[in-house]
Simulated assay, not measured.
Amino acid sequence: MSNGTYNIYICGVGGQGIIKTSVVIGEAAMAQGYDVAMSEIHGMSQRGGSVSTELRIGDYKSSIVENHKADMVLGFEPIEVVRGLNKANYDTKIVFNTIPIVPSTISQTGERYPSVENEIIPTLKQEYNNVHPLNGNQLAEDAGSILSLNMVLLGALTASDDFILSKNDIIKAMKNNLKPKFHEMNIKAIENGYNAVK
């Protein structure tokens, strides 16, 4: 937490639950007495377009995370993480789902999507100190549904020693945001993500 502020950059594609993820973190932080600022950046708003949100928790002047100042990059999709690296510095914690959603822009132009295992992960690990790739899709399916991917990533986020919110803070905020019938599955998803990083 630099200068009393914890900065999180969250990125992925439309339909992955990124906005909901940011709301849960924001609510959990406010419940702990922190000030929170959030800005949303939607690319193409249809499913499959780039979506990112920036959260600043604590003492901040603006809602935008300055370049190289993110404490955490939380990525739902590998190439979106690569796109967001201008927010990261050597010590930024980078937690991301390794399963690609190939954007229509790549499939239409015939460009090649880089190999996550052979290119993206090794490059990130070479350039950054704190890289945590995880198969979020599998962990979400193990919890009961691919739709719980955002909760897997939230759980993974709370496994970070320097993160200012606990797993229980996140679970409480999740319960305030989702229908009771989904609570059990989402708690399992949070646990799965937490254990994958721990």
Rank of each mutant, 00 (worst) to 15 (best):
N176Q: 11
V36S: 04
I121C: 05
I121L: 01
K172L: 14
T123I: 12
V24W: 00
H132I: 13
L124S: 13
Q108P: 01
L153D: 04
M30L: 06
T92C: 10
D91K: 11
E66S: 11
A189E: 02
H42Y: 15
I120C: 00
T105D: 08
P180G: 05
I187Y: 12
T105E: 12
D91H: 07
S166C: 03
P114V: 00
I120T: 03
R56L: 06
K87R: 15
I106S: 01
T53P: 00
Y6K: 06
T21C: 15
L154E: 02
N67Y: 11
G43Y: 02
V82L: 14
E141N: 12
Y128V: 06
Q16T: 07
L124E: 08
P78K: 13
K181F: 09
N168H: 12
E111F: 04
K188S: 11
G12Y: 10
E184G: 12
L134V: 10
S166K: 06
K125D: 02
N186R: 10
D162R: 04
G4A: 10
G58H: 10
K20W: 03
I171Q: 01
P100T: 08
K61I: 01
M151Y: 08
G17A: 14
V81A: 08
D59C: 06
S52N: 14
A159R: 08
I164L: 15
E184Y: 09
E77Q: 08
G110D: 00
H132T: 11
V95I: 15
V24N: 09
V116N: 01
D91V: 02
I106A: 00
K188T: 13
G193F: 08
E117L: 05
L165F: 08
A173W: 14
V65Q: 06
A173S: 15
A70Q: 03
A159F: 03
S52P: 01
I25Y: 07
N7Q: 12
D142I: 12
H68R: 14
E141Y: 02
V81F: 05
A143S: 15
V13S: 01
G17V: 11
T109V: 06
A189P: 00
D142W: 09
Q126P: 05
E141L: 14
E27Q: 05
T92L: 13
S2K: 13
E77K: 09
S148R: 12
I94Q: 11
I19Y: 09
A196Y: 03
K93M: 00
K125G: 03
D91F: 07
M38A: 10
K61W: 02
I8A: 05
L147T: 03
T123G: 06
H42K: 04
L85Q: 10
F76H: 14
H183R: 03
S52A: 12
V82H: 09
T109N: 10
H183Q: 01
T92Q: 07
N137V: 12
S52R: 09
Y60N: 06
S2T: 09
A156D: 05
D71F: 10
Q138I: 11
A156H: 03
A159S: 15
P122L: 01
F163Q: 02
F76I: 10
L85S: 10
A29D: 07
I18Y: 04
N67D: 13
A173K: 12
E40Q: 14
M174C: 14
A189S: 02
I79S: 10
N137Q: 14
K172Y: 14
